[in-house]
Design a protein around this nucleic acid. Structure first.
Lengths: 184, 184
DNA sequence: CAGTATATTGAATATACGTTCATTGAATAT
DNA sequence: ATATTCAATGAACGTATATTCAATATACTG
């Protein structure tokens, strides 16, 4: 119970403020518990962060297993899922942001390396190549297309985490980055 | 001379690592100068960051004055400028990232407020509405469209700052987020 | 060259913040 | 009743890091 409380509040703060900017007392104060109690459940700030990254890893590995027929529909489905749950279950979108955050320098190396094992961009590049052969995805360097798509999603999730009141985009708008032809 | 050296290195580090994660000694070491010298030119880490944000403010106000006939071409031109200079003059793209970074909680309040005066998203929402009337931009909530577009650009710039070797997207791919009809 | 300003250093200081730990209170088992 | 376990506290501690400053080198000026 306490464990989950702490995790979710930490997720929220790490995502909105950043790892180093989030003081251990920020988390304690936000939950109205003592610092001591926090260390009773998590032996260090780093370990707490590590737990969150591990949680994110599971989620990421899960989504890569989403079944699909056309690669384009894979991206559509994943994106649709992200955008529709972003409002009701903010933590999903926060996890998304956290995983990207954890890959940056400045994060404790051990954790960073773990986070780097998730590589949506190069994983998706393969699917994009398939989609190009099938004619549903536009021409161009698959890696660059994958990069464009995921970076856009990243940017949207990041902003939504900071400003949840801002209206989210429609799935098609973002899907059109990689889509070959409009189905107007 | 030293001033500029320090600013650009600080910009690079603040953008790749974050404000709190960047130690004042990181900057000094990267430039191979003493900490003392750094404080000789900038009275504090915060002031140094403030200077960077002020520099970014000027740039942002400048780009809003880019002339255009069709709103869609405004977005095309600005985006084209950003993407083409991103590789040769990384600092422009870094400034872009810095300004967004500076708006987040965890940044000293005074600086944060200053950074918040730049509001590309609502500024652009007006242009998008125009574009919709002229028929060059797709239907939908102008604010959501503006948000989608700029968040995508943000995500791309952020990732490029961390991984400059990753191929950048073509302007049209991102422009297609807001474009009404493809000019195939 | 003397003299002054400016650039540069790095050890000393102050402080913020993560972490420890002795202690308390409450619940549960013996 | 007594012992044992566990949640919970917050003051005390240590360390990392921003900041200061007195001392030194270098450049400039007349």
């Amino acid at each position: 119970m306490r464990q989950k409380q702490i995790m979710f509040k930490a997720l929220e703060l790490f995502v909105t403020k950043g790892f180093a900017e989030t003081r251990i007392t920020d988390i304690a104060e936000a939950l109205d518990i003592s610092v001591g109690l926090l260390f009773h459940y998590y032996e260090s700030k780093e370990k707490l962060y590590l737990e969150l990254v591990k949680m994110g890893l599971e989620g990421a590995n899960g989504s890569e297993k989403t079944p699909f027929d056309d690669p384009l529909s894979y991206f559509g489905n994943v994106l649709d899922g992200l955008l529709s749950t972003a409002s009701e279950q903010p933590w999903i979108c926060m996890m998304f942001v956290l995983m990207a955050q954890a890959q940056k320098p400045g994060i404790p190396e051990e954790i960073r390396q773990l986070a780097l094992t998730v590589d949506q961009i190069s994983f998706s590049a393969g699917l994009i190549e398939q989609g190009q052969k099938l004619g549903s995805i536009r021409e161009g360097d698959p890696l660059a297309l994958s990069n464009a798509f995921w970076c856009s999603v990243q940017g949207i999730m990041e902003y939504h985490a900071a400003m949840p009141e801002m209206p989210l985009p429609k799935t098609e708008w973002i899907l059109d980055i990689i889509r070959k032809e409009r189905t107007i």
